[in-house]
Amino acid sequence: MDALFAIAGRDFVISVSDTSNARSIVRMKKNYDKTYKLSSHTLMSACGESGDIANFAEYIQGNVRLYSVRNSQDLSPSETANFIRNELASSLRSRNPYNVNMLVAGVDRNTGESSLYRIDYLAAMSKVPFAAHGYCAHFVYSVMDHEYKEDITLEQGFAIVKNCLKVLKERFIVDFPGFTIKVISSSGIREYSTDDI
């Protein structure tokens, strides 16, 4: 039931996730942050089995950090995404695989270019301009398909996000308590409230 989507511009990525933490039909928490900061310029958002998410995300977070400490150099977003995919692929072939879907968004500090990777629980990865996971994908993909253009500005990106949220409110039977909106750009990761955009 999670809502997880992201839109990439040339030098930024907007990541949106709902703030509800639920099991079955019961909501456990309504201000839950589903994003994980992997480095100063890389953000991962995840949905799926909540225990798996916490465990897997912390494992990834720890290992990406360990790489930076060992090599005094951060992994680029593409390297990070490939590492995550690789770890998930090995977990998939174990006795108890992680059930996690992820969006990895980041800006490469060497080239300044943004990138967005969509990874599902079967460890299929693709680099995309926009992506969504979960039931919300049924609604927001059509909006993004319709409105996304290459080289959109941050404001245009926010406009698409607004329309996505509007559609979710109007058509989706789930009522979300709120959304985490984060923008990754060359200056790092910044959080916005739904009123800001």
Binding site: N71, Q73, L75, S76, S78, E79, N82, F83, N86
Partner: peptide, 12 residues
């Protein structure tokens, strides 16, 4: 290369 899909940094 398999793990990160990028060539290994020389010093590493």
């Amino acid at each position: 290369l398999q793990k990160y899909d990028s060539p290994i940094p020389v010093e590493q």
